[in-house]
Design a protein around this nucleic acid. Structure first.
Length: 575
RNA sequence: CGGGGUGUAGCGCAGCUUGGUAGCGCAACUGGUUUGGGACCAGUGGGCCGCGGGUUCAAAUCCUGCCACCCCGACCA
């Protein structure tokens, strides 16, 4: 491609709307264009990189036994009603009506559609296992689109679904996908980490996220250097402090004026934070959005509540719970803001962190203004409706696997794999006949990769202050030939010759033949970050050029023939 | 959804406090001089000043309602 003919518009200045490197650089290189908040279009260079990622994904998916299909982004509400997600999914589901008032949505994901295909087409164990995937535009009406392609309302996703006879088959399919994902992200040039993840609203029994490490990432992962443990912060399990066997003392109400926070109470009474009980109060909503109950969650004073774990324990959708309005709650349950404890609460579901059941003589709120109770003991003084691990694993806490101190890192979630099990096949009736002519539910898995988010993650990990530094596999072009003076006959001839020969060798090459000053071309070449850079200038008459691989490498003065050979070699090694 | 900020030429911004009918840099176009790291000179074109309502002889500027966009938080298969 000749730059003089290409639709390319680079920006000299940083667009006001962008804050992080990938967003700034994708806009400055003219690779993406914003239409409205969270909706982007791809210009020639941007689209080429998207397709590079798609092709890596296709290649590895096909090798892992997947078959590519393409379903519509428009989905009828009926299927979502069958699975129960039409009401469960919440406002992120982009809903629309046709002219007759019939309900549809733009697919945020396609479990219902793929389950529907398979329940119609699959009837025998002989047809299983099967893996179908598509690369397609997805829609999620995000509350807050952010950072360009990182969190957008329209984005390109690869979604795959596996269909197996049983759990063992699913485990195999899941592992195949897991390995394919490792290859895909490695080929895309990402530094990433697979981490155990929560299954969220999509449901199911097991999941990993593939997280590209980055400070600007929105995912938080807890990991351990001493062993292989790595999990999202909301998923990471916690091993409770060992139960103590202190003698249980009688409860004692104490006057603790103005001590609303754990720090204040502990300080006032001369206790450690771990000797207290922290209360968190929530209101829950039914499907119609009406309030239908209260929840009080209790964790040890030195712990933090993990909302995801709480929601999973309660087994309710994410949007069905919110922090409670204190005054309303007080009338209904006896809770008092800042002085709520598990003793004396009523009309309220009580959720107790498992750790509290083994600890003696703790201090809790008395459900009475300016009062706390000492020596509260689980079993004797209060009980929970639900008991489980509802606390965050924080940095320095002991690793649940090996006990070493936990570390935290941030990252961009570029892919996720789920074991769905029979959640959708049961709700939607997807069955097959086994060898004994018995009807069985198909066991499913689903596997997503955010293609456009992966592009953003690659730029986030591969750039410097002058521009993008593409890995070969994802670069829009492999090489760029810069003509210093395109009107100089020697330069023009040599440039064209190199352009020809590289093209014939299968190298994707740009020829910068624009009538611009050298500085402009160099700045654009830096910004675009095409890996192989060949500059044709004053030594063109002697068939000599400058050759450079990426910005960190040295610039070499070599013959045109050597530059061509070097370019072909490196492109074939790294593509 | 809560808090904060911003909307003026394709991009980046000034003007608004103190109303008088819009300006700078970059980009674009013409001519000339330049030519190895975002050139220079001269000239040209381009604006419903986010949208509506109000105050006023007069509104980019003051009042008011709405909308859009960005950031923090809530939320996020």
């Amino acid at each position: 491609m000749r730059l003089s003919k290409m639709h390319l518009r680079t920006l000299r200045e940083v667009p006001a709307e962008a804050e992080i490197a990938s967003h700034i650089l994708l806009l400055r290189t003219g690779m993406i264009k914003k239409l409205v908040s969270g909706v982007y279009g791809f210009m020639p260079l941007g689209w080429r990189s998207v397709r590079k990622i798609e092709d890596i994904v296709r290649d590895e998916m096909d090798k892992a036994g997947g078959q590519e299909i393409l379903m519509s982004a428009v989905q009828p509400a009926e299927l979502w009603e069958e699975s129960g997600r039409w009401t469960q999914y919440g406002p992120e589901l982009w809903r629309l009506k046709d002219r007759n008032g019939r309900d549809f949505c733009l697919g945020p994901t396609h479990e219902e559609i793929f389950t529907d295909i398979v329940r119609n087409d699959v009837s025998s164990y002989r047809q299983l296992p099967m893996n179908l995937y598509q690369i397609q535009t997805k829609y999620r009406d995000e509350a807050r689109p952010r950072f360009g392609l990182m969190r957008s309302r329209e984005f390109i996703m690869k979604d795959a679904y596996s269909f197996d006879k049983d759990r063992e088959g699913l485990d195999q399919s899941y592992n195949d996908m897991f390995r394919a994902y490792e290859k895909i992200f490695t080929r895309a040039g990402l530094t990433f980490r697979p981490v155990e993840a929560d299954t969220g609203a999509i449901g199911g029994s097991g999941s990993h996220e593939f997280t590209a490490l980055s400070e600007v990432g929105e995912s938080e992962i807890a990991y351990c250097d001493a062993c292989q443990m790595a999990a999202t912060s909301e998923r990471a399990a916690f091993v409770d402090d060992p139960a103590t066997s202190e003698e249980r003392k009688p409860m004692e109400e104490v006057h603790t004026p103005g001590t609303k926070t754990i720090e204040e109470v502990a300080g006032f009474l001369g206790l450690e934070k771990k000797q207290t009980i922290k209360a968190l109060l929530f209101v829950t909503y039914d499907d119609g959005g009406e309030e239908n109950g209260y929840v009080a969650a209790f964790v040890r004073g030195d712990r933090e509540l993990n909302m995801t774990k709480l929601i999973n324990l309660l087994d309710i959708p994410e949007h069905a719970i919110a922090f409670a309005d204190e005054e309303k709650l007080e009338a209904a349950t006896g809770a008092v803001g800042g002085f709520t404890g598990p003793v004396g609460l009523h009309h309220c579901k009580i959720v107790v962190d498992s750790e509290l059941t083994g600890q003696q003589n703790l201090c809790a709120g008395a459900c009475k203004v300016d009062h706390h109770i000492l020596n509260v003991n689980y079993g004797r003084d209060y009980e929970g409706d639900l008991i489980g691990d509802i606390k965050m694993l924080l940095p320095q806490d002991p690793c649940p696997v090996c006990g070493a101190p936990i570390k935290y890192a941030r990252g961009i979630e570029v892919g996720q794999v789920f074991k769905l099990g029979t959640k959708y096949s049961e709700s939607m009736g997807a069955t097959y006949k086994d060898e004994n002519q018995k009807e069985q539910f198909i066991v499913m898995g689903c596997y997503g990769i955010g293609v456009t988010r992966t592009l953003a993650a690659v730029v986030e990990q591969h750039h410097d202050e002058n521009g993008i530094i593409w890995p070969m596999s994802v670069a829009p072009y492999h090489a760029i030939i810069t003509l210093m003076k395109p009107e100089d006959p020697d330069q023009k001839a040599l440039g064209e010759k190199i352009y020809e020969e590289l093209g014939e060798a299968g190298v994707e090459v740009l020829l910068d033949d624009r009538k611009e000053r050298p500085g402009v071309k160099f700045k654009d070449a830096d910004l675009l970050g095409i890996p192989v850079r060949i500059t044709v200038g004053r030594d063109a008459a002697d068939e000599k050029v400058e050759y450079k691989l990426r910005r960190e490498e040295e610039t070499l003065s070599v013959s045109a023939a050597d530059a061509i050979a070097a370019a072909i070699k490196i492109v074939n090694e790294e593509r």
